[in-house]
Design a binder for these strands. Structure first.
Lengths: 339, 339
DNA sequence: CAGCATGATGTAAACGTTTACATGCGGGTA
DNA sequence: TACCCGCATGTAAACGTTTACATCATGCTG
């Protein structure tokens, strides 16, 4: 059916071994035979069969990416980063997204055996047992924004803590003292870290001021509710730092309903730098998370592990950039990065 | 190194053939041996090697997706649609994005030989020659939003024409007569089709009114310029239909600078339904393009072709949904779909 | 009881590569 | 001239499956 290495060998009047050597650029082939083989291959439009090659070399030149059901910018940025890094290394990317449970992740992992040289996993459902049970033995693995205790896997995460610390610091430096925080959902690692960053920064920089945390769950609506709740507070905060942009935007709507001007009456900041952040009015000051970086660095680490390089450091953090727009009252200025 | 079918066979005290049969659910295996084999496989945590299996079956259970350097929502929606359809069929998705030239697309296509059962291609650079030269013979192929004359490939496209027609119709039905259009970049297939839909609808529904087309290139800034250009027009249009949302949003900013209220002084509509469309004020009336649908339908067609089903119809269009918000002056209401 | 159909299981070929090892040729040295 | 070394090329094994075909036991039929 398809043209194989044998056809090329016959056409060039040599053995398959020579074809293989010539086409893979080994040096033990005469210039003249090499040319004859190359010509024959071109003429027949020969393309090597990946499966056969993988079988014998034990390399697939493919990385598996196991991702949750992601939406929008986050997803596309992540893939963009992974793809860019993969491309420079001549690797392919096998993506599998939108799986709900741990067992589904397990199923995916099993079907990957023999198809990939390593896997990149991002999954809220991942746990050490599931991974141990379903990861083919010794398959190089790198985790992204996924926490699995046990210290067995290389993992990359957004520097949520540092970003939140930096944002709080920015607000403090700008003169705000009463800074409230709208938190994220319970048991969410990102949310916890951002809260911790806020608390630590406040404790360090304004030891006399208490932290003030309003409940939220990352949804626009919870931000809106948090905004309305300000009405009932004894003393209104001077600035609000929402744990993500969607809540900041919901809060912004609530503030405008309450007749409060941003940033004149109250400052506002978010986290994530979603595309919409730039378009609300006033444009939202926020922390940009470098998602593409996380993808490409994760892939790079994985490629190193596949090549047998030891990975001395297991946990890595991806820095964030402070994006100052108008909602915090500061003049817009170039980004500042954590880490 | 890894556990193979031979290890399972030895552990279960049978031949590899029986293991293969048992594990693949063939019926010519005794219940008892099947169980013994299953147990052994579980105990050893056997996972079949995909490369070996692909080599013999000539099936990889993998679809290649060759995509341009896409951003944001469009990209993630497309992958989501493809992934969902692939998942229900037990297929894997090998994605390759961000390639610039036709030759780069060609390179990618060649490396896919023997790794995929078929390819989904979306590329502005694709042309018949390049495809013919680089697609392995008889590899099932489906094109998305990519126009290759010659009638050789199954292709899916957004129904840009129908969507633009419908939007124009909506504006006409709402009573607007002088409706201007902000066009997209030259030589852009989507832009051309949207313009054609606008023109045809106008010619059909308002034969007495001339079309009025302002230049644009899909960028926010070009929409802004088009908006400002309204100042110099002899007679201001009653409604503006921008060929995409980014231009509509740019135009919205220009209108507000000119002191024009939307929709009271002038109505505005866009195309795409990007996430931001919902957040500008007033929220933007637009056409939602069902990108995920395109992805999943493309994959479905491809899967059919791989299974040997003939594809009588080559060109397919994916319908759009009219999303009525406030910028056009109509009351918000449920979506209406084309096709 | 012989013969045969049936059905479970085993044997081995095949898929398309890569690569260790064998072969054979030419030229340089003793 | 005889020997050996190096180098280009060929031969064949190996990778881990699936599956056509062979084999063998079992039970039924005549």
């Amino acid at each position: 059916m398809s043209v194989t290495i044998k056809d090329v060998a016959r056409a060039a009047g040599v053995s398959v071994a020579s074809v293989s050597r010539a086409l893979n650029g080994h040096d033990n082939v005469t210039g003249e035979t090499r040319k004859r083989i190359q010509d024959a291959a071109d003429r027949l439009r020969y393309m090597p069969n990946g499966a056969a090659r993988s079988l014998i070399t034990q390399r697939t030149q493919t990385i598996g990416a196991v991702l949750p059901d992601l939406h929008g910018e986050f997803f596309s940025e992540l893939i963009r980063g992974m793809d860019a890094a993969a491309r420079t290394r001549g690797l392919h990317l096998l993506v599998s997204s939108s799986h709900g449970s741990a067992s589904e992740v397990g199923d995916v992992l099993r079907t990957l055996r023999g198809r990939v040289d390593g896997v990149l996993i991002m999954s809220p459902h991942a746990d050490a047992d599931m991974l141990a049970a379903n990861l083919p033995a010794a398959l190089p693995t790198v985790l992204m924004n996924t926490r699995v205790p046990g210290g067995k896997y290389v993992s990359l995460s957004i520097d949520n803590y540092g970003g939140a610390y930096m944002m709080t610091q920015h607000l403090v430096h700008h003169g705000y003292r009463r800074i409230a925080f709208i938190g994220g959902p319970a048991n969410n690692f990102d949310a916890d870290e951002r809260l911790r960053g806020y608390r630590d920064a406040l404790a360090k920089l304004l030891p006399k001021h208490d932290a003030s945390v309003l409940p939220g769950d990352f949804s626009e609506e919870s931000g809106y509710r948090a905004g309305l709740a300000l009405r009932d507070l004894a003393q209104r905060p001077e600035a609000i730092f929402a744990a993500n942009d969607m809540m900041a935007i919901g809060c912004l709507f609530a503030l405008s309903e309450l007749g409060l001007r941003v940033p004149d009456d109250i400052a506002l900041a978010g986290f994530d730098d979603i595309p919409i952040a730039r378009f609300v009015s006033p444009p939202l000051t926020t922390m940009r998370v470098r998602i593409a970086d996380m993808g490409s660095q994760a892939l790079q680490r994985l490629a190193e592990a596949i090549d047998g390089q030891p990975q001395p450091q297991l946990a890595h953090e991806i820095g964030c950039s402070l994006v100052i727009r108008h909602s915090c009252g500061a003049a817009a200025q170039p980004h500042t990065d954590t880490s």
